[in-house]
């Protein structure tokens, strides 16, 4: 049996680092892990996904739709866009802070984040809403959300990876100067649950 985590968001939000940390953490826990990233043109402000697959019966680098145990969404509309990936009774962690595409700023219409959250709660009973601004307030930048949200996932019991393994993953993945801060951010994420 595999355990599948889909990370989704908007290019530039740091989903790639989050997926690397999950993969490294799973590997530290001696699990077989595969992952796949969106790289290229879509990274410029377009929707991005990272697929993390833990288990030894995995062949496809992409999670088949309907098979994600956990979706970690960095933006509410991106959670809605990818909800078909969620397995029945799967869990969703979603950041409620919206990013409006430039096209919408131009037309003046805005999409409603709350509408997305309502839609998500109809799709799963296992929905956890977080706010990147409040979660990362202490650290002065919402850029830390990618690591903080992994703490939230672990704290909420959604991750099939040990805390030690995740800490080790941060130590060997993140640039040296940022290891301590990121560990602090991660622990803060756990504590916030």
């Amino acid at each position: 049996m595999s355990y599948n985590i889909l990370l989704c968001g908007v290019g530039g939000q740091g989903t790639v680092l989050a997926s690397k940390l999950l993969a490294a953490g799973a590997a530290k826990d001696k699990k077989v892990v595969h992952s796949a990233e969106t790289i290229g043109m879509a990274q410029r402000g377009g929707p991005v996904t990272s697929h993390v697959r833990i288990g030894d019966d995995v062949y496809s680098p992409l999670i088949p739709k309907g098979c994600a145990d956990l979706i970690i969404a960095f933006e509410p509309s991106e959670a809605a866009r990818n909800i078909d990936y969620l397995k029945k009774d799967g869990a969703v962690i979603v950041n409620e802070v919206t990013i409006n595409p430039v096209t919408q700023a131009l037309s003046g219409e805005k999409y409603d984040g709350q509408e997305m959250l309502d839609f998500l709660s109809k799709k799963t009973s296992n929905l956890k809403v977080v706010n990147s601004n409040t979660l990362c307030e202490k650290f002065g930048s919402a850029k830390f959300f990618n690591v903080a949200v992994l703490g939230v996932a672990l704290g909420a019991g959604y991750l099939d990876i040990s805390k030690d393994a995740m800490i080790q993953a941060i130590e060997c993945t993140v640039k040296k100067d940022f290891v301590d801060t990121n560990k602090e951010v991660f622990n803060h994420g756990i504590a916030s649950v």
Binding site: A42, R44, G45, A80, N100, E115
Partner: peptide, 18 residues
């Protein structure tokens, strides 16, 4: 194909210059 029963209008998010 399993189309989502309840669909929601999603914002279009084309790639843009940074």
């Amino acid at each position: 194909k399993d189309v989502a029963e309840e669909n929601i209008k999603l914002p279009i998010r084309p790639p843009v210059l940074c």
